[in-house]
């Protein structure tokens, strides 16, 4: 936990190498750190600060600007219910209220067992399946209250483990190529590994 482990650090260095300026890797590195721990630990933010050449205060300041980056622990599943206009017109608030009852938490809270964090999301670009939900940024919809119950059951039972990785795992595909174009200063990602 906490600090970036060797594997994450390897990926981080390969990511930094993709950008003309180190600081650009700040957000991708935050995603990597979240993939490791589910949230951005203070130690990870300190590591990122060093990797991209800013202060930890700047990493935290930047990360907290963004909704997907969590500087406090969250559950294994972050259930984000979109309540924006299209979903609202299709009953999103009913789904959200039901989710609060079903999970026994309010928006922004995490269940005691650490399984679920409930969020009230802005439009997720899934309005054709309104009300739409994301669990760890995987789409589900339309989700009315009964569908929400089924979804929660499936998540809890592990039936969706293939589809929904633990929170923070954003992109399960690793980039395998480094920079190649003429004039680019970068080196192939693989060579950056320590």
């Amino acid at each position: 936990m906490a600090h970036l482990d060797d594997e994450t650090r390897r990926k981080a260095l390969a990511t930094v190498a993709l950008y003309p300026e180190r600081r650009s890797a700040l957000i991708p590195l935050c995603h990597l750190a979240q993939a490791q721990d589910g949230w951005l630990t203070p130690e990870a933010m300190e590591d990122i600060a060093e990797l991209v050449g800013v202060t930890p205060a700047e990493v935290r300041g930047t990360a907290t600007f963004y909704d997907m980056l969590h500087t406090e622990p969250v559950g294994r599943y972050v259930v984000a219910v979109c309540t924006n206009i299209a979903c609202m017109l299709s009953g999103a608030y009913e789904t959200l209220e039901h989710a609060e009852e079903r999970l026994g938490v309010h928006v922004g809270q995490t269940t005691e067992d650490g399984m679920f964090t409930l969020e009230d999301a802005e439009c997720l670009a899934g309005c054709d399946k309104a009300p739409c939900i994301q669990v760890n940024h995987r789409f589900f919809g339309p989700v009315d209250p009964p569908a929400l119950d089924r979804l929660v059951d499936d998540l809890a039972s592990g039936a969706l483990d293939e589809v929904v990785p633990p929170h923070g795992v954003l992109c399960r595909v690793e980039r395998t190529v480094g920079l190649e174009a003429a004039g680019a200063a970068g080196v192939p990602a693989a060579e950056e590994a320590p």
Partner: peptide
């Protein structure tokens, strides 16, 4: 380079 946003 594919650059991921972070929710804003």
């Amino acid at each position: 380079v594919i650059h991921p946003g972070a929710g804003a």
